[in-house]
Computed example of a mutant assay.
Amino acid sequence: MKVCYLIGYPVGHSVSPAMHNAAFRKLGLDYRYEAASVEPGSLAGFLNGVLRGPTARGANVTIPHKISAMMEIDAVDESAAAIGAVNTIVNDGGVLRGHNTDGTGALRALKESAVNLTGSRVLLLGAGGAARAVAHAVALEAGSLTILNRSPRRAVELAETIRGKAGRRVEVAAAPLDEAHLREELGRADILINATPVGMHPDVEETPVPKRLLHGDLLVFDLVYNPLRTRLLREAEEAGAEALSGVEMLVYQGAEAFRLWTGREAPLDLMRRVARRELGG
């Protein structure tokens, strides 16, 4: 049996084990998916002591390891190198290869929901691993991208990276994540993407954006998928905005990771049903 892991801290909230194990069973694959709670100081030991082992096939990587994991593996694909973060690792005979399926997962979630990114004004909250992937993907089609982050330096660094990759195709800006900048940027944004963990279980009553700043001309995409309807999404709908749950990105990025591990196309409908069931939806 081959084992795939979810590496993060904490990981008790994740529905990925149920989602992937259902997919493995559906296709009759001798695989198992397990959540591994790995504290930041223990990441190198887990990767080298467990993930390189003969029964390990790979892993998904989540908060807080998406950036630091790059330093501990043997190779990364072109997309992950450009993004500067990995969310998927494949063990090829003891060689650990990193990939990033977050950006393609987010882009597919938006497009499958009939969102037209072309020329749109996107406001992205966060500058961590998931935000980096989403920023690179969105910048390929959006008209403008503004990144707000509690640490302005990280937002500026990400904006400079995107600007260097995208050239003149997209206008990129960065600023601190505070109410003044939220008010200013939301007033002209078409799409709001939350790539911070604010509102994630168990802190379900937290939100990165005060309700009074939301409006009906927005599409609000929250990458947080647990709970299924975050406070941000609930209040966006109450303000008349369109809301898109992070469970869609979860399914699409998970399906691409599944393909990398197994060489098989994932049963998307099953994965979505299981994820929603686990989340009470």
Results as ranks from 00 to 15, higher is better:
264 R>P: 01
10 P>L: 08
86 V>W: 00
219 L>P: 04
243 A>E: 00
69 A>K: 07
229 R>V: 13
280 G>H: 06
92 D>I: 07
84 G>L: 05
235 E>Y: 07
249 M>F: 10
205 E>Y: 12
106 A>D: 07
275 A>D: 02
239 A>E: 04
227 P>W: 00
14 S>D: 02
107 L>W: 03
175 A>L: 07
84 G>W: 05
124 L>C: 01
42 S>A: 15
83 I>K: 12
132 R>C: 11
138 V>N: 00
4 C>F: 09
130 A>T: 14
125 L>F: 11
141 E>S: 15
179 E>T: 13
197 P>W: 08
42 S>P: 07
279 L>H: 12
129 G>M: 05
167 G>Q: 04
257 A>P: 06
156 V>T: 13
133 A>P: 04
120 S>N: 11
216 G>R: 01
227 P>L: 04
279 L>W: 07
261 W>C: 10
176 P>E: 12
36 A>D: 09
156 V>H: 11
252 Y>D: 00
42 S>L: 13
40 P>R: 15
139 A>L: 00
75 A>R: 15
137 A>G: 04
28 G>Q: 10
267 P>T: 11
204 V>W: 03
180 A>Y: 09
154 R>L: 05
119 G>I: 00
175 A>H: 01
85 A>T: 10
98 G>Y: 04
76 V>L: 12
266 A>W: 06
239 A>L: 00
137 A>R: 05
257 A>R: 11
